[in-house]
Design a protein around this nucleic acid. Sequence first.
DNA 1: GAGTGGTCTAGACCACGCA
DNA 2: GCGTGGTCTAGACCACTCT
Lengths: 239, 239
Amino acid sequence: MTDTPGYRPLYRQVYDIIVRKVAQGVWRPGTSLPSEQSLAREMGVSQGTMRKVLDALTAENLLERRQGKGTFIAENTQERALFRFFRLARPGGKRLTPERVDETVKVRVARAAERTKLDLARGERVVEIVRTRLIEKRPAIRELIILPAALFPGIEKRPSLPNSLYSLYQSEYGINIVAAHEELSAQLATAEDQQLLEISEGDAVLVIERLAVSLQERKVEWRASRVRCSDLVYAVTLN
Amino acid sequence: MTDTPGYRPLYRQVYDIIVRKVAQGVWRPGTSLPSEQSLAREMGVSQGTMRKVLDALTAENLLERRQGKGTFIAENTQERALFRFFRLARPGGKRLTPERVDETVKVRVARAAERTKLDLARGERVVEIVRTRLIEKRPAIRELIILPAALFPGIEKRPSLPNSLYSLYQSEYGINIVAAHEELSAQLATAEDQQLLEISEGDAVLVIERLAVSLQERKVEWRASRVRCSDLVYAVTLN
DNA sequence: GAGTGGTCTAGACCACGCA
DNA sequence: GCGTGGTCTAGACCACTCT
């Protein structure tokens, strides 16, 4: 029951068509779209309306437009994807990038909590990824990542995973992450935190739980990160 | 040296004029603007261009448009301002609202760190506000707030402060907060935290440092909040 | 110079709120 | 029924990129 509008503006319909084409992989990331003019003709709308659509999609990071060149499906390059969702920085603002150090990947049946988070049915399988990440050569983040196995066939057989998983999701599995809901809290470091993040007893860690949502509005990844925050902060700007 | 564009689109010029009028208080929050048509005539641009400007300002939360009624300068009502920048929630998503319980306000000379954060000169004075806030009747947040005294004359003499300070800044001092940069980290609760937030030794607290920026792009408020996070999280959505 | 997106215009008609 | 914002159109010209 999605709030029957009773009236659906043209530009909304065209918008949905384009989103669907990208979601279904008809248009691949990095490739260019036809020009504003030809798209407009093709879909039977005016150039002004088509422009409104393309501008909206650009604002939502799904497209990129470059004057004189064309309109392109946004690509989650390593750097881009990292900076888009990775919020850790030095106090004062300097952005940082993590390096992956080791990981274990396995497939197993989803637990109750995971089924709830990811809208899975009883008995469905998930991929579990556990990894530690370094920032400037020091252990900084312990991550537990849960994915619905059905969406990522064979991912556990890959020899290694890239630092930014979201570019992998996009290029290999056709899944575009467009939003992430994060919940942060503070906890006392556990014994395991102390060992793996090389911190002391009595230190606190920042715990970040993330639910990532795809273009098709499906809950695609659940992630819990435990962060050493001796000289790291989570930086965000609210508008 | 702001990146001389050498070319300044019409809509950008009009945009700046309107921002300036709001910033200078020519148009007051809550009041309505002239219609699109008359504004366009007044400024000598087409209605389409004026619409582009008004839509952009609406997207930035400076204006509100209501079909059939008109265009209004956005007002930081108590609720609005709270939900815009207050990110604490129950795990799982339920938004919460805090209540103020007590506060002390004094004016003093700025310390070095404060001068840096707020771009103040040596010897300038600041307002220091210390308060505790409750969530569902339990102490949840300890806040230290620093303001440049020059921007908030007489604020220390007010009998009490509202729960949402930003609506006060706007209505009484003509200062519109449009963005907040936040940096989060986790710390072990201090003895004072334990007492005032009613938590135990060895608990961790979430520390949120915020720098709030006004429409005139001036750094207007620096705030450090210490949050009991036994059943609270900081919730944010990244796009 | 040809092709792309970016800006700007002028005007028509639709949906909404209110008196 | 009038005035407001919301949608849609058709067309002109400007700025950027590449060849």
